[in-house]
Design a protein around this nucleic acid. Sequence first.
DNA 1: GTTCCTGCAAAGGTTTTGCACCATA
DNA 2: TATGGTGCAAAACCTTTGCAGGAAC
Lengths: 156, 156
Amino acid sequence: MSGMKQDTVTPTEGEEWAAAARVALEREGHRSGGARDTVIELLAAAGGCLEAEDVAEQLRSQGQRVGTASVYRALALLSELGLLERVAVGSSAARYELVLADGGHHHHIVCDDCGETVPFSDGRLESAVHGLAAPAGFEIRAHEVTLHGSCPGCRG
Amino acid sequence: MSGMKQDTVTPTEGEEWAAAARVALEREGHRSGGARDTVIELLAAAGGCLEAEDVAEQLRSQGQRVGTASVYRALALLSELGLLERVAVGSSAARYELVLADGGHHHHIVCDDCGETVPFSDGRLESAVHGLAAPAGFEIRAHEVTLHGSCPGCRG
DNA sequence: GTTCCTGCAAAGGTTTTGCACCATA
DNA sequence: TATGGTGCAAAACCTTTGCAGGAAC
């Protein structure tokens, strides 16, 4: 038995993340008011774990007229600033996770049959990863763990 | 300090893997003699960690006339049979790793600046991963760890 | 001879880029 | 008004699929 638990981003954490994102963007001299802001709001509300197309789709279903390219550009910029982590889970599209101020984050288990992706977190795993010594001259800045298997529905 | 070390597949391990692959394919009723065999040979010699395009390119530079689709089909079949693991490391193309009989495998550290990918293995990390309890009803069959950072060349 | 495998070409899905227009500062 | 951001469209990239010809059993 390990310390694994379902990890969720609370509404409060989401709003704090959005505030930090806005501050970081302003500090870097970026303008506010456009599509990027709505991407930030949506990510904060959803708590991350979205594909680019999810973001675009959900914004459009809210009545926003947002171009796919703008979504990708916003996600790329936020990733560069260290506010998002782009995770290539599964075989298709990448997902974006909030990078929270307290360093708390989660990983993913993917059903290889249906593609369902479920987040989890585990303290012992984090300890093991942080104990890693980087190979020759590398500087480690982030890590990503993906489990593969079958979900309850596909396991029959 | 942890048990991390550079992990390489020895020529002997590679040949054993190729033999196992040929046995598995015959057992499943697949024919031999075509492009798939050369893909197996190349993977065994290279020790894995190749992208589909690498495989196609290297075969062509050996004078083989091989279609990209055949390479992808071979890689997909070998993955289905559990002889390869498809890993989505970095942002672009997937890489394929040999699944060795002794269960030994490695993970990857990626330079987010230049894309260089270096394999590593670590015993303590493996223990931590195997100690994980799967979320509700999931059955874990494989895992994948990717570190992100900067390589010596890009760290300046 | 039948079935599977192959190469080529075309299509599919994801992500990036070019460009003209608009909004922010 | 100068700059950066945006939407749209087209391109680039990785991967899969359709198909006719060829190879293995």
